[in-house]
Amino acid sequence: MPLDTSLKRVMVIGSGPIIIGQAAEFDYAGSQACRALREDNIEVILLNSNPATIMTDLDMADRIYIEPLNVEFASRVIERERPDGLLPTLGGQTGLNLATQLAEAGILQKYNVRLLGTPLEAIRKAEDRDEFRTLMRSLGEPVPESWIITDEAQLAEPASSGIWPLIVRPAYTMGGSGGGIAHNIDQLTEITRRGLALSMRHQVMVERYLQGWKEVEYEVMRDSNDTAITICNMENFDPMGVHTGDSIVIAPSQTLTDREYQMLRSASLRIIRSLGIEGGCNVQLSLDPHSFRY
């Protein structure tokens, strides 16, 4: 893919605090992005709230703003710096959310800032659990039984499905915070109530809990020419049911045969292509330890 020479100055949104779902790899990815941009003589403006990262070292960017990662401060930086483009896809969930908010507040349009990397529409498709599920079904990719809940009254259907335990995942929160596993109707109601309050979109997904399945991830990249590659895969040491933040992950996978490895790799590439992602993406899959079901 050739270099886009219309970009002279690019603003990068940094990784912010390092917590579950917003881990140190985003600092690494963001630092590499800054380096790659400067290698091509593009001026880099960095916005990051976390001074204790590698990317906020003095030689990483041309100008560094250590400010809160919210619309108010980001708008002021944009107003002052007038970047040609905004690169939000290397700052983890924080960067994606902030870019979405900046676009919705009309800031990007007002200052004529191009959103680089994955289009917002693709981010929305990947983040909105209902849209994502519909897309997976259209691709023929298996997804567990699930229900989108925006109102407590909608819990009647999953509660009467006979599927237990169920997992509750709020949309648009970091590392799925605010979610939990429900073994009965009381737990389901309580966790859903908490999740709805924490979700930016007031939406949670209730789905079959794949306890004991292998947890496998692929780091995938795609460019606008539709070249897509997997950087690596990873296998969680503990199965589904143990939070990644309480476990360790090993790259590459250790207990997958080549057939399983390639089956999940092909699925990851189909998914990133169908979403239209331009940039990096983490695809998380779960594999039955006793069959090829995933």
Partner: peptide
Amino acid sequence: EASPGPKD
């Protein structure tokens, strides 16, 4: 035909 390797 891959086996082993990617099916691209």
